[in-house]
Design a protein around this nucleic acid. Structure first.
Lengths: 181, 181
DNA sequence: CCTCGCGGTGTTAGTGACTAACATTGTCGT
DNA sequence: ACGACAATGTTAGTCACTAACACCGCGAGG
């Protein structure tokens, strides 16, 4: 683990701690940097924005692959929904818990409204690319991928906010509707 | 026209001018206020944020109404798409031109990525409400409404950016896909 | 006609995210 | 050990946005 990765992790950890302690808005970048034992300037060299500390986009290529594998006669929105459903099927409890923690922080910070979608550029592009390879035109494909990711985001935020349902249930219901059911 | 409305209009006009001249990011709120003959403080008393100068949300109740009027057996995403298609059918050329101007400004400003969706809270809520009255559960309805508005937004931005197609065509193709076709 | 109230505005001073320019340090291969 | 380069620090900004308080014009009451 080189120096870069070490500070990177320290910053991410410090950010998550402060976000959960004080909330996203009340945790200033100055204090995050301080807790990580580093200057504020360094924080912005590692992360392009404050959001990025919370929303690094670990794009999952499995999603796009699963979408491309859907039968050709399936319309775009359904192919997206079913592909994503498959890709998320085997999610383990640990990941779900971590996801919920992050989503809770996002849901409670009004300044992060729409931040999830904004930081999903890679995912959207990959999904749109998968649709295009199935024969869809570029513009509608991009619109469909964006719609799916946005819809999914609000569904996930709602799930994280309310204690009631399991991730699989909430995700399943959302994908049913978004896919055209 | 009382004093409030006069400054309000002066600010909006000054903002649009500067945005088209210099681009959204390069036009500082200070200079907008100056051109409107008013202090920066006053600008923020009239508009909650810089975005709002460009994206006042004139919610169209016709859209929600048209969605609610769709046949009950139609699935949510299709009801949204068809309702919106009807509500936008009779758009006149002047509105389309004005819309294109605003959308161009948004498309060219990277800092406004996702701003359209963020400022459509009222519209999304109204559409979700319309779906709920048709019998949908609240959470999926909200997800579907958000997805539709987001998808529509990128389609409109793409339309504004490329000279090629008519608004009706671009909108129609996007709604076809988003509605499940 | 005067004055009182209050809506609309100005001023000042500040916070917080983010950037630019330049100096400084740690580290790693030779 | 030493030069080179990656990583960090320092300083001084810009810009969106907020708070506190003073001021001024304009219409309604006496």
């Amino acid at each position: 683990m080189d120096r870069w990765s070490r500070t990177h992790e320290a910053l991410r950890r410090a950010a998550l701690e402060l976000f959960t302690e004080d909330g996203y808005d009340a945790a200033s970048t100055a204090r995050i940097a301080e807790r990580a034992g580093v200057s504020e300037m360094t924080l912005f060299r590692h992360f392009p924005s404050k959001d990025a500390l919370l929303l690094a986009d670990p794009f999952d290529p499995l999603m796009a692959e699963a979408v491309r594998a859907r039968p050709a006669e399936e319309p775009p929105m359904r192919a997206l929904a079913e592909g994503i459903r498959r890709a998320w099927a085997g999610i383990d409890a640990d990941s779900a818990r971590d996801l919920r923690i992050r989503l809770r922080i996002i849901a409670e910070a009004s300044s992060l409204h729409g931040a999830l979608e904004r930081n999903s550029g890679e995912t959207i592009a990959a999904l749109a690319g998968a649709l295009a390879k199935r024969g869809a035109a570029a513009a509608p494909a991009r619109a469909a991928a964006t719609a799916m990711v946005s819809g999914l985001s609000v569904a996930l935020l709602e799930w994280a906010r309310s204690e009631r349902s399991s991730l699989d249930d909430a995700l399943g219901r959302a994908l049913d509707v978004l896919g055209g059911g």
